[in-house]
Design a protein around this nucleic acid. Structure first.
Lengths: 167, 167
DNA sequence: GTCTACTGCTTCGAATTCGAAGGGCATGGC
DNA sequence: GCCATGCCCTTCGAATTCGAAGCAGTAGAC
């Protein structure tokens, strides 16, 4: 069974490469800013931001891990750091006894509020500076379906190596 | 000195979040595929791909590091692994005695050829599946100026806190 | 009621990452 | 020619990451 032609369009290839490079550069810049502004790593910031966004200020561990695309063990580690720093609190979920609910503290909100403007400044300066309002709209319109598609796609396992006789 | 309003448009925010999530998911999927197909990390694959793309099959260490947005010490480590695996060769540059030229070997090219189809398959299936040809063109058209802008922006230091008085 | 399968989080060890510090070559001023 | 400055790569230590294994709690079958 012959593979499909093993190459992407030059345009696709360029888009893919640029996507990787752009996010890498953005991530490095953002990490540096967060480190300087509040001694936070990007993951930590993402976690705080996600908690701060929640109406209750809380999330389950697993949901947080899925939200920021992170391993569970890594999240345990980071949650430990954040808790030790007094930025979040962990408590067993009243509902599921095995579940842990993470809640942002006032200190966490304060730190978030402190670093957020600088963060946004970097993102705007690097990512949105060369884009018009319509450009951004177009970009958002392109990314949304991709995001949904990726979320829907079997997230982990499902190794296609499985040569099921039938399929 | 009043800051600009410290928030991004909802559209901008959505685009930013989706960008991060999409690349994170893509990266995880790609890493898993590369690991299974050829026991390569993403960085290693990027390095091999970059070398394979070069007309000479070679690059200086620094250029490689800049190309894949990586730290120099990290590159030294990875180059060591790749060399130990026989996928690349390191040699002092004939020109600059202090510079090291990394060259991909036949084994490196072979491995690259072996994992590339699967890699492309994953990228196409996750990133380009929900996008039309015109969508991809639009995406490429949006990312290119951002990439150039980021490249032009002071790559490392130069904390933008510097209120450039004159220029 | 009990057993089995599944979910949620944590611990553990190994691998990777980065920044700071160090050693060697190159370039321009004198 | 000689020195100061800067670039290029490497070593070093500390921090972060992940997957596999382990420990609970939950849900459904019987």
């Amino acid at each position: 069974m012959p593979d499909s032609p093993p190459s992407l369009d030059p345009v696709q290839l360029g888009a893919y490469f640029d996507l990787i490079e752009v996010t890498s550069l953005l991530r490095h810049a953002v990490e540096q800013q967060l480190r300087e502004a509040g001694d936070l790593s990007y993951v930590q910031f993402q976690l705080l931001a996600r908690l701060g966004d929640s109406p209750t200020g809380s999330h389950r561990m697993t949901d947080l891990a899925d939200g920021v695309v992170y391993s569970r063990s890594g999240l345990t580690y980071q949650a430990g750091l954040l808790e030790k720093a007094g930025l979040v609190v962990r408590a067993p979920s009243p509902d599921d006894e095995r579940s842990i609910t993470v809640t942002i503290t006032d200190a966490g909100r304060a730190l978030l509020a402190k670093v957020l403007p600088g963060h946004i400044e970097v993102v705007r300066g690097l990512l949105f500076e060369p884009l018009s309002r319509d450009d951004v709209k177009a970009l958002a319109g392109l990314l949304a379906p991709v995001r949904d598609h990726m979320r829907a796609t079997p997230p982990r396992s499902a190794a296609p190596r499985r040569r099921k006789g039938g399929a």
